[in-house]
Amino acid sequence: MTRKLAFDKFPLKSTAPLSVEYRRAVRIAVVGKGGAGKSVVAGTMARFFARGGERVLALDSDLMPGLALSLGADVPDEPPLNAAAERPEGQRWRLKKGVGAVRAVQRYSVRAPDGVRLLQVGKLGPEGLPPIVASVQAFYLVIHRLPRTEFFREWTIVGDLPAGPRQTAFDWAPYARTFVLIVEASWKSALTARRIARIVRARPGATVAFVANKVRTAADVERVEQLVGERVRASIPDDEAVRAADRAGAALIDHAPDSPAARAIVRLARDLSGAELLYS
């Protein structure tokens, strides 16, 4: 674990001497079918890493609400990232002058509990895409700069992608080394997982960690493995606490930190951080 620094005191460019041995930080994207439990897993892991002293950037590229609730973050009505991008006449979208990945996170992310920084696209409202399109474009540009931005080298990044294979195919998680693929014991969930896994494996350097969710019995885990045709890395029990937290609009880690599901997600986070470090 590294020391914890207040974000705003951290220099814009890393001034750490070259002799410092950098620890490779965890880079995860959580993917799967709709309703599989992606946001709960992503939100709980992000909070857990932050509590352990990591600097954590949580990324939400879903146009529907999700990760902010699971993190326990308050989100402004107007998507802050709208201010980060512009589209000059007849040209493509670009980040505004002076806005890079560091500035974008500094200015346009919101604070979530435990010091997590949440950067997210705007959410669809009654007027559809036009009011938030700048935030979507800015988000895509920023996340593509993250992997080569020195400042974030030691930051833990946890991304929550929308349902299905679409964003994985369109490269909406260029930062991710591990794709945490949430699967339930159902055909629709398993077929979705197979499709996403195929796409992830076409990316050099990316690995898939299958996670069985809403598990009631050991047979559910076997069923998932049978349907997907792969071994699962972890399983998360079906837990009333998850539904209760959702009804209360609260983060699982606040609402029921000792629930079986929260414990299982924390175990998974530990396992993934150990595994990612192993290959560094």
Partner: peptide, 10 residues
């Protein structure tokens, strides 16, 4: 249906 890596278009 999307089942391959597609270039471009976000």
């Amino acid at each position: 249906r999307i089942d391959t890596v597609e270039p471009g278009c976000p």
